[in-house]
Each structure stands twice: as structure tokens, then as C-alpha cells.
Design a protein around this nucleic acid. Sequence first.
DNA 1: GATGAATGAGTTTTCATTCAT
DNA 2: AATGAATGAAAACTCATTCAT
Lengths: 198, 198, 198, 198
Amino acid sequence: MARKVNPIQDRQRRAGLEQAAYLAIFEQGYAGVTLSDIARQAGVSKGTLVYHFGSKEGLLAAVMRRFVRTIAVATRRALRQAVTPQAKLEAYVENQFYGLANTRRFYTVYLDFLAASTRDPALMQVQRAFVDETHRLDLALARLPGEAGADDRAWQLRAMVDGLSVRFLSDPDPDLERYRRLCLHGLTALLQLDERAG
Amino acid sequence: MARKVNPIQDRQRRAGLEQAAYLAIFEQGYAGVTLSDIARQAGVSKGTLVYHFGSKEGLLAAVMRRFVRTIAVATRRALRQAVTPQAKLEAYVENQFYGLANTRRFYTVYLDFLAASTRDPALMQVQRAFVDETHRLDLALARLPGEAGADDRAWQLRAMVDGLSVRFLSDPDPDLERYRRLCLHGLTALLQLDERAG
Amino acid sequence: MARKVNPIQDRQRRAGLEQAAYLAIFEQGYAGVTLSDIARQAGVSKGTLVYHFGSKEGLLAAVMRRFVRTIAVATRRALRQAVTPQAKLEAYVENQFYGLANTRRFYTVYLDFLAASTRDPALMQVQRAFVDETHRLDLALARLPGEAGADDRAWQLRAMVDGLSVRFLSDPDPDLERYRRLCLHGLTALLQLDERAG
Amino acid sequence: MARKVNPIQDRQRRAGLEQAAYLAIFEQGYAGVTLSDIARQAGVSKGTLVYHFGSKEGLLAAVMRRFVRTIAVATRRALRQAVTPQAKLEAYVENQFYGLANTRRFYTVYLDFLAASTRDPALMQVQRAFVDETHRLDLALARLPGEAGADDRAWQLRAMVDGLSVRFLSDPDPDLERYRRLCLHGLTALLQLDERAG
DNA sequence: GATGAATGAGTTTTCATTCAT
DNA sequence: AATGAATGAAAACTCATTCAT
């Protein structure tokens, strides 16, 4: 007997549980979080989590799918709202480093996710889809100064963002504005070089 | 009962166990590795590990200290052997992406380490010391084109390296030579831009 | 809240659910079947099962009562339809080994039931009533060759049937016709011996 | 690192745990027994059971292998000690119905085992090996009155034993002597008939 | 110094039962 | 009457740690 559920209600229920799980993962780590942690955070019983996601593994995978989907949507919206190339670049950076707590929470979980994906084929698939999607967005940015070498530039832009984010996490007293500046200047440098070379 | 040991022999013993643990961490993950995994890899009993390191936590911390020390030593040596600025840059990149299996093993463990350090104060301390040490090396590279803005450039260089490495791990069919090229060109772009701007 | 039901409709409803439960028990085992299994097989919700039978235990007991009742009815009818002693014996055997799938399903569940009854007093009561009822039928068969020792013979007849059935279940490639022959010849031997002895 | 154990000590340790598990299975049922039940019966922790047998499943399989091995050994010894055909038959029956508590315990567990084996391929394999082995012994008995039809007779002998044993378990006030008599007479009848027929 | 048997706290998972709708 | 979301008690299993040898 297939579960006869109201699809809308079920989706909302799951979304709430996934959000609670996201916070629990931030606090306890992807590998260290327990169903008890998540259940406590969500204010439900462990059984409820298993009921909705089949297993802990299923829940964590759902959280990560939602996580990368959310990122992609936010990035796309940021780029769409800006008009000039320079404004697009700034919106892109602002989106990556948006609020201290938010940025820390975001990259902490992302780092966990990356580490976990190196051993979990299902997570690796999610990560690869995310890489592909973000690469398409990066490519649009990289094309602005000219067509030649855009693909390489796109990978370099992303590397700058990811690399600064990793550093941000072990910065004992992070100054978000500084990371924004480092990022913006770095991206600018990467784009201008290739412009001249191309 | 105080351990009375020959310090030299003891150091060698521990070094061997730490190397085995490193391989076990690569295979099972920092969070997923068990004392049994490590004992199996090292060909000793679990008791031996606890005897030498006090606890699993102590062993893992020792592994990570050795890990970052090894990296720093290799980077320093690579930079010292090269003479011209351009050669230094190339040696730096070659050192970061040295051998497919090696690079994968290396960054897989590093990513695990970074993720774990966000929640473990002792590991975070190790990570911060490592960041400081590598920053000094990066700074030497960044100074080559001129003094102004060297600190910012150093962070950007490191970000490029780290960011490309992260991407490397989720690349389904990584071409090491391409990563070397992306890295070298990226670093060159970052250095030249600031040179002009400075 | 007393259940107010149409007794006829209710009996039919329960009969259908019990039949579904019987099939689920065959597939999952008496001890291994879950309410979800049964609900799926019956095409209803778990709540419906509990509503009609009070609990899982009540449902299983009802299934087993129906099960032994069905067996007794079939045996009685088989014996009634045959006229001569020889024909009665053959009808008896044919009834026990009727169809490969049917025989396997039947004895698989019966074995489960027997095993469960050794620890469940309520089931043991059902099993004892069943033993008494079948013994009366066996006694009629055993009397055919003469009165003396009929009770002993009746137990032996039943033992032959049960014993061959148990073996049937672990036969990797059972030949139903062979079991019928073994059973018929075995019963004949048991009856004739005592005939001479009596 | 393969477990370096003293094989003798390890075998004795396991044997003790298996015996405790056997008693726990008798009390709680094959499907109903828990690791806690067995640990309590054995006076060890649950962890110890898993340490020695890998899993609950592994432990139960070991218990059943030991169980059927013990039966086969006892039957073989009983038959070997007796000399004349009649004495062999009596020894066989005495071995099957040896002591009230013992017989009850024995068949209760055997019935559980049979029921479980219908759904567990590993157990079914154990059961089939047991059937083959006992059939060889039964065949020796069945050959005594002559070669013709010995195979059929062997199956019938075993059926009589198994069938009476099953009945024994639901007998509210079992008289062991009576079951011995029923069994001995039944077996005699089966053997004599075929002798005449052959 | 080294071992590995044993432990028990902590984890995921199962599932009969409850209950609001 | 019927549903199925939610629960929580109980289950199997994991594994760092202890300790007698």
C-alpha cells in the first residue's frame, strides 16, 4: 500500500525536518550528527525522521540535495539581478560572503559535505551535479571579458571563492569585509589577465 | 606507571604507527576510521595504539601534526631548490599536484582534517599553525613582483591552490596536468595584476 | 466505545483480512510478519487491522483459528465423500498432499503455528483443540481394520502424515506424487500390521 | 590483522556460549530470542556475543550447526552400540525419547529451527545436510529386513519419529513411555510390511 | 611493551500501538 | 469505519576503552 499522503503537506513537513537537520549538522558535523541530535533540533521523535526519510542516510542525502539546490538558486538570482559585468561580479561576491554567521554556517556544512562525498558515491553524485551547475554560472561570469579561455577562467574563479571560504573557516577573527575585498580583487585579477592574454 | 622508553626508538615507533594511521584515514575517513582499522593497517593490536598515544583522539591529533609538518617541509624545500621567481612558482605548483594517487590521497585527508578542525579546538590549533606557516611561504612568493599588497596576494595564491584541489577531488576523471596548468596560470594572473596595480 | 456492526458484514470483512494475513504469514513467517506486511497484502491500513482485531496478537490468533477450522472441514469432507475403507484412505492422503504450491504454503504456515504454539498458551489451546478434532477423524480411519489398538494406530497414522510433511518442506525438489505414495503405503503398513496383530 | 587466538580456548568459549544460547532459544523461541536473553543466560555482555560470532545471525547459525551435529553423533552412537536388529530399533527409539525434559527441550528447539529454516537459506542448508545424514542412518535400519524398498522405508521411519515428536509437544500431559511404545510399534509395523511385500 | 577478550555506552533501526482527522 | 503520521520502547550492532596475562 503506497503511502497515500497529501504531497504538499508532506513536502512541507520534510522541508522543515531537513532545515532542522541542517542546523544539527552545522553543530555536530556531518559525520558526528546523530538522529537524536536532529530529532531534538526538530522537536520530533527519532521514529518520525525514519518514517519520513527511510533512514539516517536518506535524511542526510535529502538535506544535502536541498542545500546545494538552495545555493544554486541564490547564486542564479544574484547574478540575474545585476546588470553590468562589474555589478554581476559584486553581486556574486556579496552572495558568497553574506553575513558572518550565515557564511560560517554555510561553509562549515559545505566542507563537511565535501569531505563526506569523497567516500559516499551517492553524495559524490550530488556534489558533481552541483559542480556542473555552478560551473555554468561561473562560465557566464568568465565570458564577460571575452570568449577565449572562458572555461579555464571559470574554474579559477570558483577556486578563488572556495579557497577563500576554506581559509575563512579557520580564521580566528574573520573580517567578512576583507574576505569580500580579497575575493573581488582576486576575481578581477583573474578576469583581466586573460582578457589581455586573449 | 610512567612510560620509560628510549626516546629515539619511541619516536620511530610512533612515526610508523602514524603513517599507518594516515593511510587508514585516507581509506575510511577521519570521522569513520576505527582503532581496529588503524591497528589492521599497522599490523599491531588496538592496545598498542592506545599504549603509545593514550587514546584514539591522541593518535589522530599526532597524525595531523605530522601531516601538516610534512607538507610544510616539502613546500619549503621545493621553493628553496628553485632560483628564479618563475621557477619558484613552477616548483610550488608541481609540489601541490605531484602524482595522481598522491594528490588524491593528500587532499582527501586534508579535507577531512579541515572539516574535523571546525569542531575540535585542538585540531583547530594545529590548522591555524599550519595556516600561519604556509602564509609565510606564500608571502615570499607574493613579494616577488613587489612589496605592495603582498599580504593580500599571498592569501589569494593560497585560495587558488586550495580551491582547485577541492575541485580536483570531485572530478570524475581528473587530468593532473590540466590542474597544474590552471593553477600556474591562475597564480600568474594574480601576481601580474597586482604588479601593474601596485 | 462499543463497536456497533452488522454481524454478517463484519464476519465477511474479518474473513477477508484473515485470508490476507494468512498469505502474509506464509511469506514473512509467523514471527517475522508485521502489521504493515499484512496491511499491504490486504490493501488496507494498519489502523483497520487493529480496529477489527484489537491488536496484532488478536489478528494472528484469529488467523490460526480459521486455519485449523479450514483444515478440519476439508479433512472431514474428504473422508465423507469416499465410501470403501481403501477409498477413504486414498481421499485422506490426497487431501493432505493437494497441489504443490498449496501443500508447501499449508505446511509452512502450520510449522510456524506449531513452533509459536509451544510458547503461547492461547495458541496452544487452539492447537490442542485441533489435535483432538483430527484425532477423532484419524480414529475413524484406524477403526476400519478392527477395534483393537485403534487409538494407538490413529496416533501413528497422524504421525506418518505430519512427519512426511515436515520432510517435504526441506526437500529441495519435492515430487508430490512420491509423497502421496510414501504416505499411502506407510498408512497401509501401519493398519495391516495391527490387523494381523489384533 | 587476523585474530590471533588460541584455537582450543576459543572453541571452548564458543561452545559454552552456544550452549547458553540453546537454552535461551528453548525458553524464548528461535525467532523471539534476543541477544539480551542469551547474554543473560550466558552471564556475559551482548558485546561478547557479537565479538565471538560476528552477529546474532552468526550465533544462531552456530547454535544450529552444533545442535544437529550433536543429534547425529548421539544417534550414530546409539545404533552402533546395539547388535541385533531388534536391539538397534530399540536403541534408536530410546535415543529419540530420552528423558521428559530433555525430549521437550530438544523438539521445541528443533521445531523452531525447522520453521526458521523455511525462510533462511543458510539454515535450510544446515537442515538439508542434517536430513541427508539422518537418512543414511535410517537407511541402515531400513535395510535390516531386506534390500527392496529400503529407501522408502527409511523415509517412513523418520516420518514416524518426527510426527510423534510434534504431537508430543502439544500433549498436555505427555507419557514418555507411551511415545516410546507408539514409536517402536510403528517402526516395527513399517519394517515388517515391506518385508512381506518385498 | 604488547595483546586481544570483554565491556557498556551510544547509535541506528524496527514496529505495534495510539490518536486526531 | 478507516486512515496514516507520530511515537517510544526495544532491538541489533559499533567501537573506544580497560585490563589480566
